[in-house]
Computed example of a mutant assay.
Amino acid sequence: MSETIGAHSGLHSEHGGHRGEHPGRSSNPVIKVQDLAWLMFQKPDLVRAEAFAQAFGFSTVLRNDTELHLRGTDPGTPCVLIRRGPDTRFRGMAFTAHDDGDLQRLASATGGTIVSLPESIGGRSVNLVDPSGFPVEVVTGTYDLPALSPQMAHTFNFGHDLRRVNATQRPPRAPAQVQRLGHVVLQSTKYLKALNWYLDTLGLIVSDFQFFPGQRARGPAMSFIRCDRGATPADHHTLAMALGPSNRYVHSAYQVCDLDALAAGGAYLAGLGYSRSWGIGRHIQGSQLFDYWRDPDGFLVEHFADGDMFDSTMEPGWSPFSASGLAQWGPPVTKDFLGTSPRLIRHEARSMLSALRHDNEFDIARLIGLLKVANS
């Protein structure tokens, strides 16, 4: 019988891994990236994209006929770069390297070339492609935008612990101010190969593994992955990846200051006619308060607050993958969020049939496991 090691009772997961299971980190990564810098998208209508972005809580850094750069209130780089194009698509992500030495090591190990980034951003990058086909830039030396005036968290009375006396609480129904980019979630037909690439090449480490119901022996099918900053805490996940029938963007998440900002910002979005996908609730893996929205092009974006922060000592947790296990509290997970709504199901069915015809990790047994997740 496998011996359970690294048990997590009372921590982020009830169970650690079994001996011989994936360790969740590389023994000798090429480099260790520091953070997720930005995401890149293509959209046909930048005016419409900017209108939603500002209602969602971004500020505009650059806008012209071909590009739109969006930022949060934290100092640093823009966190979303959008180029005008004939259709809507995810065009990849950028991670921040520690220094030029890391870029040199990465270029040498991968056969890549160090190139200069556009003048509007500054710095240098090594441009890679992960095993799923997603473009990945690793950057350093970029311009740091100064901090903007932040949205302040409210002062709360907690039971008999009174911190607000002779003062009312009136959060305005206004856009939640995005502070920063938190994470991106991707689906991959080559999940394990892609996972190992991010661990071996960029030094990311796993916070939580999930496996399809009844299929733990086949290994994980979902992972929540963070940056390894040593003793400095990092987000529970900077990147999350799931095995599925297509290589695609699932959603991205942007931090706001507290629950009131998230809820009042959601009320503002709803008042403008934008579509909530799922929320408000609190996740299990990562613990974030969440609220998911569809942008006008159908892409899923999340407001989050109060997420878990782990240093490098935390070992991976292991748990079954289930729809009911996505939240500690909140409304039931929606068909829109799971991709099983009538609007999305035809595309998902085509993706499944196509994946089964090709040589990848998504086979019949994995399809059955995925369907069990959606119905759990």
Rank of each mutant, 00 (worst) to 15 (best):
P78C: 10
V33W: 03
L326W: 14
A107M: 08
T232A: 01
D35H: 11
P220I: 00
F52G: 09
R180E: 11
H22G: 11
R229W: 01
H160M: 11
A49N: 05
A53W: 01
G325S: 10
I280D: 06
L353S: 09
R170E: 10
R346G: 12
F321S: 12
W38E: 09
H303W: 13
F58H: 05
L204P: 15
S319N: 12
P86Q: 15
D99F: 00
I225D: 07
W38Q: 10
C227M: 04
L11S: 14
G76E: 05
A153K: 12
N166E: 13
A305S: 15
L262R: 10
Y249A: 08
A51P: 00
H358A: 14
T232S: 02
T88I: 03
R63E: 03
F56C: 11
L289G: 09
P172I: 09
A194G: 07
L46V: 02
L145H: 07
W329C: 08
V373D: 12
G6E: 00
V250I: 07
H15R: 15
T113D: 07
G369V: 08
P320F: 05
W318T: 11
D258P: 05
M352K: 11
L289P: 03
F304H: 12
G286K: 10
D260M: 07
A323N: 09
N127A: 14
L344Y: 05
F224T: 10
G273T: 05
I284E: 08
A53T: 05
D363I: 09
Y198E: 09
A231N: 11
T140G: 02
D102R: 12
F158I: 15
Q288T: 12
W278T: 04
R25P: 00
D200K: 06
W293E: 14
P44A: 06
T77I: 08
L269S: 08
N166L: 12
Q288S: 12
L39D: 11
V206N: 07
A37W: 03
S13P: 06
S275Q: 15
T110Q: 14
G24A: 01
L370S: 14
L103I: 06
F134I: 11
I205L: 04
F56G: 13
L367S: 13
H358R: 15
H303S: 12
L62G: 01
L371M: 14
F41L: 14
D161V: 15
W278I: 03
A221N: 15
G330Y: 11
I31M: 06
R105K: 15
F290K: 05
S125I: 04
V250Y: 08
D130S: 13
S59W: 01
V301K: 05
I280P: 12
V178L: 03
T140K: 03
V165K: 04
P75G: 02
R164F: 02
L62F: 01
R218G: 04
G266H: 10
V138P: 15
C79T: 14
G133L: 04
L371N: 13
Q177I: 02
V126Y: 02
F337R: 14
I225R: 07
V250E: 11
